[in-house]
Computed example of a mutant assay.
Amino acid sequence: MIFLDAAATTPVRREALEAMWPFLTGEFGNPSSHHTLGEAAANGLASARASVAKVLRCRPGDVTFTSGGTEADNLAVKGLALARRAQDPSLDRVLISAIEHPAVEESARYLERVHGFVVDVVPVDGYGVVTPDAFRAALRPTTAVASIMYANNEVGTVQPVAELARVAHSLGVPFHTDAVQAAGWLPLDVESLGVDAMSISGHKIGAPKGSGVLYARGRQKLEPLVHGGGQERGRRSGTENVAGAVALSTALTLAHAEQATLHSRVSGLRDEFIRRVLSEVPGAILTGHPELRLPSVASFCFPGTSGESVLLELERLGVVCSSGSACAAGSDAPSPVLLALGIDPAVAQTAVRFSFNSTVTEAELSQAATAVYEAVGLVQGLGRR
């Protein structure tokens, strides 16, 4: 099998497994316990926090370990909005883009449904870009928080996050970005990006599922979602997943060290894959920005087919990929992301996403491009072999 669904998840790196193993066995203590086992666990957690902070170029105290990107997004959007409104009741709006991950969109809708916030949605252009002008026009004096993803999980479009953050700050609005897909591929220096909060998921970068991070600038007040013993500086109560934190910090450090080299290599492979699909598959449409996109994502629509049927043929031919977000569980509706780009609903239902991990090879993508040609032809009844 050629695995081209890395935007959904990645295999756990051996280095991450080896780093976490001691905290699943001999050093199993609770980091809040005041004895030798507890101190060993606390030291491991502190070391993991410092490693993450070094990659993000922030203070260790700004790093909160979570159960994944979804929890980190929820904590950022809900936590910032509720804390700010508690200080100033006039702050009753949340701004998101039309192509946010459900973890951000549903957090905003929760605030709307339960707490009376107004959700403002900034549109994207036909490539999925939030322009600074559109973003500025959508901001209000009463916006409590703005959340725009760094890179889209379906079409791969990369947003001008640093510029958007500057616009938000010019109006005194804190800015959060979902960097779940960007981690490992794009710079994560929070000072250069200018973000106040940023979410990362471990299993997208070679750590186990169930591990994540929220960076939140220390001066930003954050209402916790989980109350209890006050762990994670009061931002996320509950006994910490030390092994998961250690694995995530290890995977993030390795991904950061490899990022520049991987970006160049995989971008070249992606571009050749896109060229072949567009030139060999009649009617194929590339979705997302042709240049401002993740190295790891190539997404297409194949009008006149069913995306799910193409997926089944591709798997039969040895290629595993997806029709879009793995988080839209059980949905056969057209992707809201593609609809926001202005793609016709019937065409949006023909979408197929190919996403690559760091080990993808030229031979694999060449074989995959041939398989796409054959699969689309079979679905269209052209009987290609």
Rank of each mutant, 00 (worst) to 15 (best):
I2T: 00
R13K: 15
E18T: 07
W21T: 13
W21R: 15
G26N: 14
P31H: 05
L37M: 12
A40V: 13
S47G: 06
A53V: 05
V55Y: 04
R57H: 13
C58G: 02
G61T: 14
T64F: 02
G68R: 06
T70C: 08
A76G: 02
A76W: 00
V77P: 11
L80S: 03
L82D: 01
R84S: 12
R85C: 07
A86F: 05
Q87T: 08
P89M: 12
H101P: 14
P102C: 06
V104L: 01
S107F: 10
R113H: 15
R113E: 15
V114W: 02
V114L: 00
V119T: 15
V124M: 00
G126S: 07
Y127P: 05
G128Q: 03
A134G: 08
T142Q: 06
A144W: 03
A144S: 13
V145R: 12
S147H: 05
N152L: 00
N153V: 13
V167G: 02
V173M: 10
F175N: 05
T177F: 01
G184A: 13
G184P: 07
W185H: 06
L186T: 04
V195A: 00
D196S: 14
A197H: 02
S199L: 00
G202F: 08
K204I: 11
K209H: 12
L214E: 00
R219D: 15
Q220F: 08
L222I: 15
E223Q: 15
P224C: 04
V226E: 08
V226Q: 05
H227D: 14
G229I: 12
G234E: 04
E240V: 15
V246R: 00
L248H: 01
A251N: 04
A251T: 08
A255L: 09
H256R: 02
A260G: 09
T261W: 07
L262M: 15
G268M: 01
F273P: 00
R276C: 04
R276V: 06
V277T: 01
E280P: 02
V281R: 01
L294C: 10
S296G: 09
C301K: 08
G307F: 01
L312I: 11
L312M: 06
E315T: 09
G318E: 03
V319R: 00
V319Y: 02
S323R: 08
S323T: 07
G330S: 13
P334W: 09
P334T: 13
S335Y: 04
L338C: 14
L339V: 08
A340D: 09
P345S: 11
A346P: 11
V347G: 07
A351T: 09
F354A: 01
T361S: 13
E362Y: 12
L365Q: 10
Q367H: 13
A371Y: 04
Y373L: 08
V379P: 10
Q380A: 09
G381M: 11
L382A: 06
R384P: 12
